[in-house]
Design a protein around this nucleic acid. Structure first.
Length: 267
DNA sequence: AGAATTACCTGAGCGC
DNA sequence: TGCGCTCAGGTAATTC
């Protein structure tokens, strides 16, 4: 599933290949995603030049000067960069054809993704206006996390997955960061000390940056924009030995999300 | 306000 | 082979 690192690596590759190019044609096959895809895209986009691509959390923001194309990959979505006009497959919902022959194809079996057109300041849009600080920015630091967790009873894992608290930390990285910080995911957020908040922020940054680097390396050898192999300490390893102490990892559900941790290493 | 729950969607995996 | 079931989960909306 695309998490923040995959989205960032996708962004970097698309910046290299597409910025400065203009759109020739848009083919919209399926509009029924989590939010309806505006059919006006097929008339709004042709002729416009792509000025740049930004990212906010897991949202990609394509800058067309006087408007922005917003893309969220949901759980199963991905963008493929192709050339020519290859036959679309099942779940290939949207094609954006550039005038240099490139084709950006949005594919999403589960249709949890989002494609929208934003006029004006994209950060004022309801989908983005309530999002918390970027996890890789200075704004997300130990003091911030300490303050925002005070008197909160919710489990710390659910708190760091809350996009109002910090942008783009999904289930995989939440599990992974808490393991590295040696903090139990079901601890009430308000019980975290300042030291623990400092440590948790540091490991969140570490795991995200590590995956971004790994993804950049994979991209060199990969012509398509897709996922890249990753190895996790805890995610998907419930019942298997803890990489730290060898004890079996616990698997519980928090907020209906699969949560894996080591009850002997994480306190 | 904060916490908990539900809706959205389909492929994969499983038992029978 | 195929049916029915459960699970996966980001985010917004809804309820408590």
């Amino acid at each position: 599933m695309p998490e923040l690192p995959e989205v960032e690596v996708t962004r970097r590759r698309l910046v290299r290949e597409l910025v400065g190019k203009s759109i020739k044609e848009v083919v919209l096959r399926v509009t029924k995603l989590r939010l309806p895809v505006p059919t006006e895209l097929t008339t709004i986009l042709p002729g416009r030049m792509l000025h740049g691509i930004e990212r906010r959390g897991k949202y990609l923001l394509f800058d067309f000067g006087t408007g922005w194309l917003l893309v969220h990959l949901g759980m199963t979505g991905f963008l493929r960069l192709l050339s020519g006009s290859p036959q679309p497959g099942k779940h290939d919902h949207l094609d954006i054809v550039f005038d240099d022959g490139h084709l950006l194809r949005f594919h999403d079996p589960r249709k949890f993704g989002t494609v929208a057109w934003l006029d004006g300041d994209p950060l004022q849009h309801p989908l983005l206006s309530g999002i918390g600080p970027e996890p890789l920015s200075e704004e997300f630091n130990g003091s911030y996390l300490f303050e925002i967790t005070r008197n909160r009873t919710v489990a710390v894992k659910q708190l760091i997955m809350n996009s109002e608290v910090v942008a783009g930390v999904g289930n995989i990285y939440a599990n992974e960061a808490l393991f590295r910080a040696r903090i139990r995911p079901d601890r009430a957020a308000g019980t975290l000390t300042l030291q623990e908040c400092i440590e948790l922020v540091a490991v969140i940054r570490e795991v995200l940056e590590g995956s971004i680097k790994e993804g950049d390396v994979c991209l060199v050898a990969d012509e398509t924009v897709a996922y890249y192999p990753q190895i996790f300490n805890v995610y998907g390893r419930g019942g298997k030995p803890c990489p730290g102490c060898g004890e079996p990892l616990d698997e519980i559900r928090l907020g209906n999300r699969s949560t894996v941790f080591c009850s002997s290493c994480q306190k």
